[in-house]
Simulated scan of single mutants.
Amino acid sequence: MEIEINLASPEKRKAPDFYNLTFGNIFTPHMFLMRYEEGKGWHSPKIVPFSDIELHPAAIVLHYSQGVFEGMKAYYGVDGKIRLFRPWDHINRLNRSADRMCIPTLEPEKVFEAIKTLVLLDKDWIPRKRGSALYIRPVIFATEGTLGLKISHEYLFMIILSPVGAYYQEGFNPVRIYVTEEYVRACPGGTGDIKTGGNYGASLKAQEMANKKGYSQVLWLDPLYRKYVEEVGSMNIFFYFENELTTPALTGSILPGVTRDSVLKLAPKLGINATERRISIEEVIEGIEKGTLKECFGTGTAAVVSPVGEIYYKDKSYRINNGQTGELTKTLFDYITGIQYGEKEDSFGWAVILED
């Protein structure tokens, strides 16, 4: 694939001071664009200076949410090499999301080439501080202008980059999560198992309620019984009972997280029994009260592994592990980030090194 490259001005290409870096508020000087037209396919790949984009006021994505996205990261390793963590899994999930939303899929090799070219062009914007990374956001959305409810004939594929610090203000300290019974995130047969914007827009009301009560995230329950744990707003969720590390089974309404899968594959290597099954909120609360629930944590690209220190359910707060980060949680975090930064042996072949 020949990518046309138009460079930003030298002054805009100077990397900022990465001190006290937050999540998702700074963007690199370039972005990747490629368009789709029915009968022509995906065409005209190019990298241009980061700027606003122009959309038809009736663009289908604005009215009917026909769009999908992904999230992955690039890291500067301790050896000075740039690594992507499981990029092919993210690219394959992007295509699965696209197929569900009736968006033309892309050749994985071309997506990888676009990511690699853009990341290497803006490599000076990858923070070198441990705990920081370059967040990569591919997004595809319908651009055809019409008010008719239909599958678009035109799309834009875009990749933007953002140097980021910790996802949560708490950093690696335990977060507090709020269980909602009033709202649901998704249901089997819907779009809960893909990354499309509507899933996240629908979660904002419950997130607002959680924030007002001082909680960082919402823990969603199943849509039918409001009984079984599903996932957290931006993470999959894990519970470490006495002899079992478990996470909710993928039932069609839960996102199959790449970091979730990494934990499930890594746990047996650490001698931990890892399972996927139905987990009721009552089992979680009982485990806290009896002391059989030893740890709880979330997993996701943004936060990697995030300890959970407190759950709010039915107007009552429950502390997990005395509100402290558990030993297994820290071990998993250190192991995965160790692979991402080139500090640990990558026996799974998850890290892909980018070379000019």
Rank of each mutant, 00 (worst) to 15 (best):
G233A: 08
L270F: 08
G257K: 07
K290S: 13
S262F: 06
V218Q: 08
Y215H: 03
L219T: 11
D222M: 05
C296E: 03
R185T: 01
N211I: 10
S280F: 08
R185N: 04
G252R: 06
I237M: 09
S216F: 06
A302W: 15
K269M: 11
A274M: 02
E208R: 04
R277L: 01
D193L: 06
L204I: 12
K213R: 11
S216L: 03
F238P: 14
G291K: 08
C187N: 15
D193S: 05
V184M: 11
K227W: 07
D261N: 14
P256K: 04
K290Y: 11
G214M: 00
K195V: 00
E181N: 14
K205H: 15
M209E: 15
P223Y: 08
T247V: 15
V258H: 01
T301I: 15
G198P: 00
E181F: 01
Y200L: 02
G189L: 06
L264H: 04
A202M: 03
P223A: 14
A267R: 07
L250K: 09
S262Y: 05
N236E: 04
S280V: 14
I237F: 02
D261E: 12
Y183A: 00
F297Q: 10
L293R: 05
I279G: 09
G291N: 04
E244H: 09
Y183I: 00
S262P: 02
P188Y: 02
T301E: 11
I279V: 13
A267N: 07
P174I: 06
E244Y: 10
L266Q: 09
R226A: 04
Y200T: 00
A249H: 06
S203M: 04
V263W: 06
V263H: 06
L221F: 01
C296I: 15
P248E: 05
P248D: 08
V229P: 11
G252H: 10
P268E: 01
D261F: 02
P223F: 13
A202V: 00
E283Y: 15
C187T: 15
V232T: 08
Y240A: 15
E242A: 13
A267H: 07
R176Y: 08
F239R: 11
P188W: 00
I177P: 07
K205C: 11
S216Q: 13
T275Y: 05
Y183S: 01
Y200R: 03
P223V: 06
Y240H: 12
G300A: 14
N273P: 01
E276G: 03
S203C: 08
T191Q: 02
E286P: 05
L270Y: 09
A274E: 02
E286S: 15
G271H: 03
Q207N: 14
D261V: 02
I254Y: 00
I254Q: 00
G198Q: 07
I254C: 01
A186R: 03
S234Y: 05
T299V: 13
E282W: 12
G300S: 08
E244L: 14
Q207T: 13
D193R: 04
I177W: 09
I177S: 12
T292A: 10
I279M: 04
N236K: 03
G271T: 01
W220Q: 00
Y225D: 13
G197A: 12
A186Y: 05
K269Q: 12
P268G: 02
R278N: 13
G192T: 00
G287Y: 05
P188E: 00
L255A: 04
E282T: 11
E181Y: 10
S216V: 03
K290T: 12
